[in-house]
């Protein structure tokens, strides 16, 4: 283990991505599926959708057919349009939570890894946070701060921070004892340079993998929160909200629950596949095993 490790953690990625379809079918399938969801979210207005909020009471609970591809909901809104627009909410939440949790967790993990005094306090707080089931923690935060997309993202990020902080801390602690870091310290390299050149590059790969899992779990948890009525405001067509609205009539109009449910499952599946694939591709042990 010498300085080049910082490079080797990133360099193989390019060649692996090129051959990914052959070497990493899971990663490839996940990436394609995720790309489809992203395209659907971005291009939602041009994919044969109508206004997702447009009400047509006469068409309420219409079954899937030529006019309503995924059927209509309780007040005659088009479930297909709502499902496509719902992808926007889920992707925003996934990205927002991952970015926020990774940055706060990175900061706490770095402090914890370098300062013994801060470590004891921070890690005990993280232990405590981890003992509170994430859905309940998020629910309590949202119940108090009020339901908005921003608050959902903050609440879910807080629940994910401990795992990131612990991961970063373990990377820092194991690197601190490595000869190349000790050599840099002996050579009088300034702290911020050690951090920038030797520590941070080595956190990228594990954080990338962790980020995808956070993304998947945030999408899932957001839908759970919306479903139980403590998440994204009901006016926004998120998948959890659409399913919650279809809850009372699912026995004779299952399409309202089914289509957003399938979209939700496929999105989480795609992100999980990408996460598993990245983990295998970026972990040198897995590469050697072939």
């Amino acid at each position: 283990m010498s300085a080049p490790i910082a490079v080797s953690a990133i360099a193989p990625e390019k060649s692996l991505l090129r051959d990914s379809a052959r070497d990493h079918p899971g990663l490839f399938a996940g990436a394609v599926l995720l790309l489809l969801v992203i395209v659907a979210a971005l291009a939602a207005p041009w994919l044969g959708t109508v206004d997702p909020q447009a009400i047509a009471v006469l068409d309420r609970l219409e079954t899937p057919g030529r006019e309503y591809w995924f059927g209509a909901d309780l007040i005659g809104r088009d479930v297909y349009s709502r499902t496509l627009y719902g992808a926007r909410v889920s992707l925003q939440v996934g990205l927002g939570v991952a970015a926020l949790a990774l940055s706060i967790g990175l900061l706490i993990g770095l402090i914890s890894g370098f300062s013994k005094a801060a470590d004891t306090v921070l890690m005990r707080v993280m232990d405590g946070l981890m003992s509170i089931p994430s859905v309940l923690l998020a629910v309590a935060l949202i119940a108090l701060t009020g339901a908005s997309l921003g608050n959902v993202i903050i609440a879910l990020a807080i629940a994910e921070v401990p795992r990131v902080a612990r991961l970063v801390r373990s990377v820092v602690v194991s690197l601190r004892g490595q000869p190349f870091v000790e050599a840099a310290i002996t050579a009088g390299t300034r702290f911020h340079l050690i951090l920038w050149r030797h520590i941070l590059p080595n956190t990228i790969a594990p954080l990338l993998v962790q980020g995808t899992y956070i993304f998947a779990s945030a999408v899932l948890t957001e839908s759970i929160l919306s479903f139980i009525g403590a998440g994204t405001p009901p006016a926004i067509p998120s998948w959890g909200n659409i399913i919650a609205e279809g809850r009372t009539v699912f026995q004779f109009a299952p399409h309202i629950v089914l289509f957003p449910g399938i979209a939700l499952s496929l999105t989480v599946l795609a992100v999980n596949l990408v996460g598993d694939g990245l983990r295998d591709a970026l972990d040198p042990r897995f590469v050697q095993r072939g």
Partner: peptide, 11 residues
């Protein structure tokens, strides 16, 4: 691992 428990429940 990807299917939300409430979707599975309704199915």
């Amino acid at each position: 691992f990807s299917i939300p428990v409430f979707v599975l429940g309704y199915l």
